[in-house]
Structure formats: C-alpha cells, structure tokens
Design a protein around this nucleic acid. Structure first.
Lengths: 255, 255
DNA sequence: AACCTCTGTTCGATAATCGAACAAAATAAC
DNA sequence: GTTATTTTGTTCGATTATCGAACAGAGGTT
C-alpha cells in the first residue's frame, strides 16, 4: 500500500484500516484473517488488530474465522448521499423515465477515470444489469463517463487519457486514445453520448450531463438498453428528449 | 468518543478516523477543521491530521476551509451491497412489484433497534418518500422492522425494547412497550406486519420477512402507500400474495 | 496420530501520534 | 484600509500506540 512518507502528518494507521475495509468486494465478500492481511498488504498481526477494531466499531462482523462487512458500513456511504439533496430528489423523475421507456436509468459522478453510480432505477426485466449504488465503471467506455469527461479542458482530458490502463473489454472497445479523445469532444459538442458494447456485449446506453449553476457537469444521467431492443437512432429520437427533460429537472435542484 | 481502554489491541487512531468520517451527515454536509474536531470529540491537531489523511486517500475533499465527503466514500460505504448477491438480484423483482401496485418497494435489514435500507424502488409519483439506501429508521415503528424483530427470542426482544428511547412521532405511534411486544408477536404469528402512520402521518406499509436457509430473518421486504390510496384490507388481500411471492424468490437467493 | 494451516498472544523496540504553544493566515468589524 | 478576532498551520519533545517475530494453541485434513 502506497504511503506518503514525505508527509509526517499522514496517519498510516488510519490508511491501513481503510485499506482493509476497502479490500472487501464482490470477489471477496468474506475473508479470513490471513486473507485480509494479504489482500490489504499488511502483516497478520496488524490486520488482526484492524479487523477486531472494525468489529468492535460495528463495521465488520466476525462469523467463526470469516470476517465480512456489516450493513452498518452503509452509514458511511449514505452520509455522502444524504449531503446531496439533488440525488434524493432525482429518484422519482428517474423512475418515471424508466417506466416510460422500460429501461434502466442511472445517475453517476465522474471521479478520475471512473464513474461511480449514485442512483439507479433498474428496468423491470429479468435480463437486467444488476448494478448497485457505489459501483464503479471505467469512464471512457461508458456514456455516463464520456459525457462528463467532455467538460474537462484538453490538458486535463489528455492527462486522464494517459493515465488510463487501456483494456479491450469487448471487440467494440475503443482502445486508441486519440480516437477516445475525439469521441469525447464530439459527444460534448452534441451534448449527449451513446456508447455501444464497449464494456459488455449487447449493452447500449445514452447519457446526458447534469449541470450546476456554473454550467459544469456534476453528474450524468442515462438510459441503458440491449442492442436488440433499441437502435441508436431510436435512442436519439425517442429517449433523448425525455432524458434531457429529466436532466434539466435534476440540474435545477443542484446547488 | 468511547474507547475500549481494556483492549490493548484496539486501534484508537483508526477509530478516531472513522469517527471523523461518521460525523458528516445531512445536518453537517461540510465542516471546517474546528467544527469537525468538535463533532468528533477530538483535538484540532488530531482532527487536522485525520482530515488531511482522508483527503490524501480521496475520501474527503477540501474546498477552501470546508471539508466534505467525496463520492469515493461510496466505494467503502456501499461495498457491503456488492458483497450481497441476493440484494442485487432483488432489484428486478422488486421493480416488478412496484410497477404492479404503483407503490414504493423497499428491502431493509434489522440492526439493533433500527432498520437500514439496502434496496429501494421508489414509486413513480411526485409525492413519493425520498429514501436512499443506507437510511436508518426505528425498527419498532416500521413494518420492515417489526416483522424482523419477531424472529428474536423473548429475552432479546425485551432487551431491545428496554433500550428503546420511545418517541411519539405521530398520535398513532405505539409507545407502550408491552403493546409493542404484543404487536411484534402477533405480526410474527401471521407472518406479515402492517404499520399505519406510526412514523409519519399518512404512511402505511406492509412487510414480510426474507428468510435464510435456517428459517431466520435476514431482511424484510415491503410495499408502502398513502392511507388515502389503500386500505389495510386491500393491502392484505391484494398486496400480500405478490409480496410473499417476491419474498420467497429473494429468500431463494440468500445463502 | 501426525501434520499442516491458521489464529491468538506477547514482548521489547520503534516510530506514530499527541497536543500545547506559538506563528501565520483568513475573516470580521469598524 | 486598519485593527481585532478567529481559525488554521507548524513544530517539538513526550508519550504511548503500534509493530511484527516468535512461539503457543486450536482447528482441519489426511
């Protein structure tokens, strides 16, 4: 774990504790003491002290030799959402949008080269992508990310492009960084992004930005579908007007 | 901040860091250094080191003299959801239920004397209660909580009742702890709970338990409505069969 | 029963962390 | 613009929190 040795005020113990918390994920829903030590890059004794402290505080639960996150950890994530009124207020209009088009509707914030989902209304379908609030996806290969990246200046956009670890998730993934740059600029000009199958076969999504009063993107809103259900032009013609309407509604409550 | 002095392995630095993180909330979306020190019960120098460490790690953002949670905290805060497949898989059937009855549908877990929402499909209505995942509400005054409390033995149920700080949220709030106990037992016997206006005027909800393979309640599922739209008997007759059906579906994916 | 893996505990050593005190910066009041 | 007040940044020696190797104990597998 990278520690900022130059800053004597940096609290390594806190960082280690958060590293342990952050090592639980979908692939590792529960871990033994030794597994957690390995996942967080710590000694067994240190990991043990951290896990026992987290258990005492209620953020982790121990069951036999297995440690797992407690639902109390949601309080930390919720605190962020609770401080963003506009996210709460987005839920109902997003639901209406989802109902109107029978597709999933999501709200996400750009963070570095990723997006993080802050609200999600799943489609009422058996074949529906299950994504929870908190999920992170690559920004350059999602409509939600691409439209927000368009609000960065060229220097910052290139900086993030160069830091990207390019991965071809599907045969459709754009991997040339100049092509990605151009696409971000085009999407910005038209004020919406459509991304097809760059992360997953069959997945097509359209997104528009949520703007603050200074005209800066603070988030993006999307509708996603399967390529067999909706064409790109159908998205542009049928989905986009309503998506823009709801985005403006949400933007109005952003401070 | 209460520190377990008896346990020499308890990591107070980690606990202090989490106390600072936990001091951000709806009432305190952003704080200065001194405010955070006060809110977390720490010295200014300690709070400063913690906030700067959290900022370096990306969980907090500094803007001038103000510190606020960063959206990156969602990764920690919602990692719990990522570790629970059954919650992800619940989203689509919950959405279908919500569509069928045009009401909000929620999934919540009991924790002490509170419930914490882990999934929510809001009704497609302008007058819809905005509740985010992570929201906590009193268990004894909600259908979601009352039905889960029914799975505790008498001793544990009384222990939690006695620790309850009774508050009359509305004229309809049950405040007599014997009456609450009786109601929990009755609801358990009938395997569903209906709660009317105990937390908020006009709010009526019906909930059923989500069971694990040992027949223990791990969560509860509800549908909520406004008292003017749906009567208690309509809930029992129209909502309950479908609610039970979806609850069984969700229970099947709980491990 | 033997072996292997994992966890619990302890200790002296190290360095992380503390917070008071003072300097510096920002804000408020006039 | 000036002055006063409030808040934050920085530093230091002191304290103690934290470290991890080593060993004992527990649990699981063969």
């Amino acid at each position: 774990m990278a520690v900022d040795n130059s800053d004597k005020e940096f609290m390594a113990t806190l960082a280690k504790g958060l590293a342990v918390l952050g090592s639980f994920d979908k692939a590792r829903p529960a871990m033994t003491l030794s597994q957690a030590a390995q996942a967080a890059g710590l000694s067994r004794a240190t990991a043990r002290r951290i896990l026992r402290t987290l258990t005492t505080l209620g953020y982790v639960e121990q069951s036999g030799r297995q440690f797992a996150l407690s639902s109390r950890i949601l309080k930390l994530g919720y605190a962020y959402l609770a401080t963003q009124n506009w996210i709460e207020q987005a839920a109902a209009p997003m639901r209406q949008l989802s109902e109107q088009f029978h597709e999933s509707c999501s709200l996400a914030i750009l963070q570095g080269t990723e997006i993080v989902y802050v609200a999600r209304i799943p489609a009422s379908r058996i074949m529906s992508v299950a994504l929870a609030v908190g999920t992170r996806l690559p920004a350059f290969h999602t409509a939600l990310g691409r439209i927000q990246l368009g609000y960065l200046d060229d220097a910052e956009l290139w900086r993030r492009l160069r830091s990207l670890r390019i991965e071809a998730y599907t045969p459709s993934t754009i991997t040339d960084i100049q092509a990605l740059f151009d696409r971000v600029r085009e999407d910005h000009a038209q004020q919406f992004a459509i991304v097809d199958e760059e992360l997953e076969r069959g997945l097509r999504a359209i997104a528009v930005p949520i703007l603050d009063r200074n005209g800066q993107a603070v988030a993006a809103l999307n509708l996603s579908t399967h390529t067999t259900r909706t064409t790109r032009s159908e998205m542009r013609e049928r989905f986009l007007p309503s998506l823009r309407g709801v985005a403006e509604q949400i933007s109005a409550s952003v401070v």
